[in-house]
Design a protein around this nucleic acid. Sequence first.
DNA 1: AAAACACCCTGCCTGC
DNA 2: TGCAGGCAGGGTGTTT
Length: 280
Amino acid sequence: MPEVETVVRTLRPQLAGAVIAAVWSSGKPLRLNRPLQLAALQRLCVGARVAGVRRRAKYILMDLTPDTDTAQVASAGAGVLFHLGMSGRLRLQPGESPRAAHTHVVLRLGDGRELRFVDPRRFGCVRPARQVDALPELAALGPDPLHDLDADTLRAALASSRAPIKAFLLDQRRVAGLGNIYVCEALFQARVHPATPSCRVRGRAQVLLAAIKDTLITAIGNRGTTLRDYVDAAGAAGDNAAALLVYGREGGPCRACATPIRRVVQSARSTFLCPQCQRR
DNA sequence: AAAACACCCTGCCTGC
DNA sequence: TGCAGGCAGGGTGTTT
């Protein structure tokens, strides 16, 4: 989510007010919307003006308004929903610059720039909607930990689940926006073992929420974590990898107690933890 | 109902 | 150098 937030922040001032002149697609389907509805995307976007760029959990919402100079193609509430998946990137580049491999959707702007959706693994999505806020992808999302989650709400949710806390925090219906890296980091900071049943973390809801917020705010301040490929819309990598306390540090010394960091697999995802600081 | 699992896809790294 | 296998930051649909 810090990566998505960084993309939104870099995109917003660059894109606000821009008019979309044309839409291109590679023709390849994306995992989260197959087939990609190119015709619908063109109908909605061409001649529309970008009214704003927002984040909801790990989704990016681009709001559109009709451009008064052209046909009324975008109704009120219309927009495009983006998800970057594991390998997706949104880049704003000059139209004459070469397109990266795996460029799947391009929105050409009236001034010649292009918003390019690049996604080697095609796990992402680019979805047009007349009412973007009403899309089913957004309907079941839980509260955003930075904006509308308080300790009491989290405590009540924790009490109702026996799932491992790691799985609980990754479940976007419970808390929306946390990915694998930041769950590992937040659990370490809160000194909670990732396999602890959620109901047994109930008494530490306040500490856990504070750790989640701190982890996210730090990562956003560092403009996201670049492990390999991630860059923001301007092509800049994030600096947060150096700030990670456990993620990707298997065998390395715990920053708090020097015990070697361990990697375990939980529900088919890597989990990193300090066995000393995070006791069951 | 909730939790575990397979799957979607490509690229990169490791070890043989 | 080549190839097989494992791994990856995420979400969905099916099975248990």
